[in-house]
Design a protein around this nucleic acid. Structure first.
Lengths: 118, 118
DNA sequence: CGTACGTTCCACCAAGTGGTTGAATGTTTT
DNA sequence: AAAACATTCAACCACTTGGTGGAACGTACG
C-alpha cells in the first residue's frame, strides 16, 4: 500500500465527524479550558476525552498550552477555513453569490457600494 | 453502550473525510455517472469504489437511479448545507457578517437594500 | 518529605473502515 | 440459451477508532 499521510482536509473532517468532538469545540469556542473541565460533563472517562482532544489537536483545531500541571486548550477556528472552502466551492457558493450580485446590480445600478465612497 | 445511530452531521463529515470520496463527489458535481465510470480512473477495485459510493449514499450526498443494469449516480449538494452551517456558526461567520452589515449601514444609511425592495 | 492532583501512556477490547478476491444477481446482447 | 456486462454480496484481512482500566509522570501543596 502507498500509505500516504492524511491531508489536512482528511484530519479536519474526520475530527468533525464525532459529536463528542464537536461538543468539545463548541465548548472551547466560548473560553479556554483544561482537560478535566472539558471531561467533567461528558459521559465517558477522562482518558477517552484525552484521546478526543488529541484528535482535535492533530487536526490543528485546538491548541494546547501547558501551565504547570494544567493543560489549557483553546479553539483554533481559523483551521476550519479549508474545510469550509471545500464545501462552499463544491456547492457552488461563489457562483450563486456572483449571480446574486449580478441581480442586485441590475436592480440597483446606482448602489453607492458599487461606486467609490466619499 | 447506548448505541445511538449516527446523526446526519456525523455521516456527512465522515463521508467527506476520505479523499477518494471527495474525488467522487467532485466528479459527480459536473455530471451524473455510472459506478463503473467513477471507478475507472481510481486506483482500486470496483468493489472498493462501490463501498465508497454506499457511504456517500448513506450520508445522502449522492442519489442513485437504476436504469436497467446501470446505476446512475448524481450529487446531492443540498445535503451539505447542515455541515456548512455548523462550521459557519462555529467560526462566527454570522457574527462577522453582522458586524460587516452594521458597518455598511453606518457608512450608507440610505442604502436601498436596507429598505423594502421593489 | 509525602500526598493529592492533572494528564498522559500502555495494554486491552469490540466495532468499524478500507481494501482485497470470488461468487451471486440481474440485464443486455448475440 | 448462452455470453458479456454492471453491480452487489460475502468472506476475509490489516488497520483504525472509541471506549475501558491501571500505571506512570510531573506539578502543587500539606
Amino acid at each position: 500500500m502507498v500509505e500516504r499521510s492524511p491531508s489536512v482536509l482528511d484530519l479536519t473532517y474526520a475530527a468533525l465527524a464525532d459529536p463528542t468532538r464537536r461538543d468539545i469545540l463548541q465548548r472551547l469556542r466560548r473560553a479556554e479550558a483544561r482537560v478535566t473541565d472539558i471531561a467533567r460533563p461528558l459521559p465517558m472517562s477522562l482518558n477517552a476525552v484525552s484521546k478526543h482532544i488529541a484528535v482535535l489537536e492533530r487536526a490543528g483545531l485546538v491548541q494546547r498550552e501547558i501551565r504547570g500541571r494544567d493543560h489549557f486548550l483553546r479553539a483554533e477556528p481559523a483551521r476550519l477555513t479549508e474545510a469550509e472552502r471545500w464545501i462552499a466551492e463544491y456547492t457552488g457558493f461563489w457562483e450563486r453569490r456572483a449571480d446574486a450580485l449580478a441581480a442586485h446590480l441590475e436592480t440597483y445600478p446606482e448602489n453607492p457600494a458599487a461606486e467609490g465612497q466619499a
